[in-house]
């Protein structure tokens, strides 16, 4: 903290919530969640390399309710971060900066992430049902 108190711009709590700030915050939050969640991917790969017993333990964990909740959250985070990431790449090219486009694309990403998550988990539950 600087020794002399200087005026600061208002922080989050002062603003009315809107899609522009939510999509930005979510991109960061899902990024942090995905970085932590990737530990699960490392664990699965190491289990697969170690042998059938370790792999069976990982499978049991992923099929448990806590594993399912974590994987569900991970799927949505991945879907959101992927779609919003593509949006960011397009914005880097200069597209989608008009306020109306920005708002529309924000909602498109949110809706798309929910659709993608639902699609993936329909496949998961279809396979779990079949197994």
């Amino acid at each position: 903290m600087p020794a002399t108190a200087r005026p600061l711009s208002p922080h989050l709590s002062i603003y009315r919530w809107q899609i522009q700030m939510v999509s930005s915050i979510l991109h960061r939050a899902t990024g942090i969640a995905l970085a932590a969640g990737t530990i699960l991917l490392v664990a699965v790969l190491l289990a697969l390399a170690s042998g059938p017993e370790a792999f069976a333990k990982m499978q049991a964990f992923c099929a448990s309710w806590i594993g399912t909740v974590l994987l569900l959250g991970w799927t949505w985070s991945l879907a959101y971060h992927l779609l919003n990431g593509i949006r960011h790449l397009l914005q880097d090219l200069g597209w989608g900066y008009l306020p109306a486009q920005f708002v529309r694309n924000g909602w498109l990403v949110v809706a798309g992430s929910i659709v993608l998550t639902a699609l993936v988990w329909t496949c998961v539950f279809a396979q779990r049902g079949a197994a």
């Binding site: 697969l48 042998g51 059938p52 792999f55 069976a56 991945l78 992927l82 990431g85 593509i86 960011h88 790449l89 993936v120 496949c123 998961v124 396979q127 779990r128 079949a130 197994a131």
Partner: peptide
């Protein structure tokens, strides 16, 4: 990011494919 945008859909496919397989 571009690399991951291309690789992530494939990884999701791989995981879904591996789901119904044994060790």
């Amino acid at each position: 990011a571009v690399a991951l945008a291309l690789l992530v859909p494939w990884v999701v496919w791989l995981v879904l494919e591996a789901l119904h397989l044994d060790y």
